[in-house]
């Protein structure tokens, strides 16, 4: 993943700390606090699900983690790097160590499926085209999509597109992968299949996964750690068991309304 245009940063590797560390982070839109004083440490090598109802600030939080938007207050550290003091070149370099799945996949519509997956390899890692294509096909096979490489994204089903987006996000072997609602808009069976794929992939690679979702079933199926966001505030954070057995009334209200009885 080296790129001659961006020099190696002199900063030491912080392999020990959390993958993502937010401290007193706030983000406002006008007078609406989308993220309100959130402090949270996302552990490495695990799946952390960030739950919350619609409009609770989940996507905003992801954008802060990727540096696509800047917090009004507080600090965001990703893989040990403080985003606010990082020069643009450093931010671009850091982003090459992250992968992201967008809610609507954000596949390149003008490229075939295999070219979508090969794109970061060719353009970011400067892998020769033939080799990138070979690796892209292998990745497509790993996400359960053999033989569809020559199609365009709009010739695929929603679940298949999600798999392509996962393959593309994994292409550069990132250390952190961020998922915005990976199962939204999918039927329950396809959702379960995508959940299983995420789980299996994470276990195989040992990568840190951060999954934004409002789907408790999905969070229950995949997560090691769970955070709950309500109105921009972090109401609970901990291991799945800790959060599931929380007695905080607001947490219970969200969980009990959505968790299947029993």
């Amino acid at each position: 993943m080296s790129d001659s245009t961006i020099p190696d940063s002199a900063a030491p590797e912080h392999t020990g700390g959390p993958a993502v560390l937010l401290e007193h982070v706030a983000k406002r839109f006008g007078d609406h606090a989308a993220i309100d004083d959130v402090t949270l440490a996302i552990p490495r090598g695990r799946i952390t699900a960030l739950l919350g109802p619609s409009g609770s600030g989940k996507s905003t939080l992801l954008r802060l983690i990727t540096g696509l938007s800047r917090p009004d207050a507080g600090s965001v550290r990703v893989l040990g790097e403080e985003l606010s003091t990082l020069p643009r070149g450093g931010l671009l370099k850091l982003r090459r160590r992250m992968g992201m799945l967008f809610q609507d996949n954000a596949l390149f519509q003008s490229l075939t499926v295999v070219d979508n997956v090969a794109f970061p390899l060719v353009r970011v890692a400067r892998v020769p085209t033939a080799e990138a294509k070979r690796r892209a096909l292998a990745l497509l096979e790993q996400v359960g999509l053999p033989g569809l490489g020559e199609r365009r994204p709009d010739e695929l089903s929603g679940g298949q597109r999600k798999r392509v987006a996962l393959a593309r996000a994994l292409a550069l072997e990132p250390e952190v992968v961020l998922f915005d609602e990976p199962t939204s808009g999918l039927d329950p069976q396809t959702s379960a299949a995508i959940d299983a794929l995420l789980r299996e992939t994470q276990r195989r690679l040992g990568t840190t996964f951060v999954v934004i979702t409002h789907d408790i079933i999905s969070a229950a199926a995949i997560a090691d750690h769970v955070g709950l966001l309500v109105d921009g505030k972090l109401r609970a954070f901990g291991s799945k068991d800790e959060v599931w057995s929380s007695t905080d009334p607001q947490v219970r209200a969200f969980l009990d309304r959505r968790l299947p009885a029993g």
């Binding site: 990727t66 696509l68 671009l92 370099k93 850091l94 982003r95 090459r96 992250m98 992968g99 992201m100 967008f102 809610q103 609507d104 954000a106 596949l107 390149f108 519509q109 794109f119 970061p120 353009r123 970011v124 550069l172």
Partner: peptide
């Protein structure tokens, strides 16, 4: 369709 953000997130 967020393709531009996808490029940015790839660095």
């Amino acid at each position: 369709t967020k393709q531009i953000e996808a490029l940015e997130v790839m660095g």
